[in-house]
Each structure stands twice: as C-alpha cells, then as structure tokens.
Design a protein around this nucleic acid. Structure first.
Lengths: 138, 138
DNA sequence: ATAAATGTTTTAATAGTTAAAACATATTTG
DNA sequence: CAAATATGTTTTAACTATTAAAACATTTAT
C-alpha cells in the first residue's frame, strides 16, 4: 500500500471542502429560491425573526459588510414594507430595525413548505454539524 | 414544562443555521484571508489543484455563474500567471484551464500554514460533517 | 452543404460593494 | 459647562462583479 503524499492529503481535504460548500449552498437554496430576494436579504429577514430587532451596525457585522451596505439592505426591505426602522428613545443615534406584519408573514411563508417534524429533524442534524465544526478550530 | 411552539422550532433551526454559516465563513477565511485574492479566485485555484484542469463551462457551473463570469475569473488568474489556457486538439472549441508552476506554488503556500497532521484531522472532521449533511436532504 | 448544437469571449448595462465624509447624538473630561 | 472624543447611521462617488445578449468559433447531425 502506497504512502499518502502531502498532495493527497490536500486533495482529500479539498474534496471534503467542496462537498460541504455544495451541500450548504443547496440547503440555503432550499430556503431562499423562489423567494425573489437575494440570499442575503432572505437571511436578514430570518435574523430579524430570530433576534426580533437589530441595529444597523449589528446587521453589517453579522454579514461582514460595511455600515453603508447594511443601510442599503435595510432600505430595500423597507421599500418592500418588510421591515421598519424605529429610532430608540434612550439613544436617538441608534435605529432599531424590525419586521413589520408583512415581513413576519413573509418569513412564515418561507418555512411553511416544511412540516414541523421535518424542521425539528433539520435542526437536530444542524446542531450535530455545529459541534463538529467546533472541533476543526482546535 | 411548556410545549415548544412552532415559532420556537423555527427559531432553534435558524440559530443552528446561523452558527454554521458563521463557522464555515470563519473556516473559509482561515484559508483565504491574507491571500489578496477574492474568495472565489482562491477557491478556483484550489479546484484546479484538485481536478488538474477544468473547462470554462465547468468553472462557471461550479460557482453557479454565467459563462461570461467564468471567463472573467480566468482572465484575472491568467493576468497573474497562475493559470494557463490551452485549447484542446480534439475539440478546438473547448479551453482547458490549468495551474501554471506559479499557480501550483501559490496553492502550496495556502496550505503550508498547516501541519500535515492538522490537515488530516481537518479532512476527517469535514468528512463527518458531509455525511451529516446527507441526512438533512432525506 | 446546411442547420443546429456546443463552448468561449465580448459588450454594455446593472447591481452590489466599499471607503470616506457628513451628519446626528452621546459620553467623557478638563 | 464647553470642548473633545466616541458611537451609530446615512450619503456619496468610485469601483468591482455580474448578468444577458450577441458575436464568434468550432463541431455534430441531417
């Protein structure tokens, strides 16, 4: 049996990488296709569902974008009436972005394709994947 | 103990999703940061290492881009002398894109930060993650 | 030969991104 | 308190990447 060269190791690693890349792309598209919004805009709607409201700064950090780009995404969703901006009373510099009624409904629509059982199964598999990812960093 | 509402299920799923999104982004950046090339260009170099050569069509499919965008990526890497294009003899419409010597070295540089042990560990964890991803589709 | 199909490149228009400056408000400190 | 500094958001202008469509080259089928 041949010894594995360092080239082989790298090739094997890349094969796994590309596989994961494809599969997670597919998974994303399972959720975001046929919504006629860019992937990031859909993901922003989902994040707003999860966190209930976010500052523009938080949004741009979450997507690793400049504040300007964050503002831009919010503008688009605001034009569609999916989100609203409210300047907070305590610190009037900050803008809280949150889903409107229409935005909430849109998010529900995204998940209504799946049964509750299916959603539960998905999240438990994703949890396992997460704990594996922890091990890579080590 | 409270029953989990369908809203809770969705929130849990999204938490896992975003976690994975962040972690795989971090992992990608482990490889691609401080290379002064866009992420896709680095990934193209890696794919070329793995497959040895690709057609422009294959490249644009792999990255889900239009053929024009594929040509564009190749142009950039060609300008940097990392890849070369060779029209194949049997079918002179097709162009085989492959790494030059300089491109090979560049790819080696990307992985030289890691010990062989580390690379092996990474790919076995990635393999596990892959098999978990299979289970989501079901 | 002609028509249809395939693979790549070019082009012009568009969309997305950025860095920097501008603006508004808060907090700190001399 | 006033001035300086820090924080959060928006605007702007320049730049980059992407697309759709057409053009081009070659091959395969009729």
């Amino acid at each position: 049996m041949m010894k594995e060269t360092s080239d082989d190791v790298i090739r094997r690693l890349m094969e796994e990488m590309f596989n994961i890349q494809n599969k997670s792309k597919e998974f994303m598209q399972l959720l975001t296709h046929d919504e006629n919004l860019s992937e990031n805009l859909v993901l922003l709607l989902l994040r707003l569902k999860l966190y209930r409201h976010m500052k523009v700064t938080e949004i741009s950090e979450a997507f690793m974008l400049t504040p300007g780009a964050g503002t831009n995404m919010c503008d688009k969703l605001e034009d569609l009436d999916y989100v609203e901006r409210i300047r907070t009373k305590d610190d009037r510099r900050v803008v809280r972005v949150s889903l409107t009624k229409k935005g909430e409904e849109r998010v529900e629509g995204i998940f209504s394709k799946f049964s509750e059982e299916k959603l539960k199964r998905m999240s438990s598999v994703l949890a396992e994947i997460n704990s594996l990812f922890e091990k890579i960093a080590e």
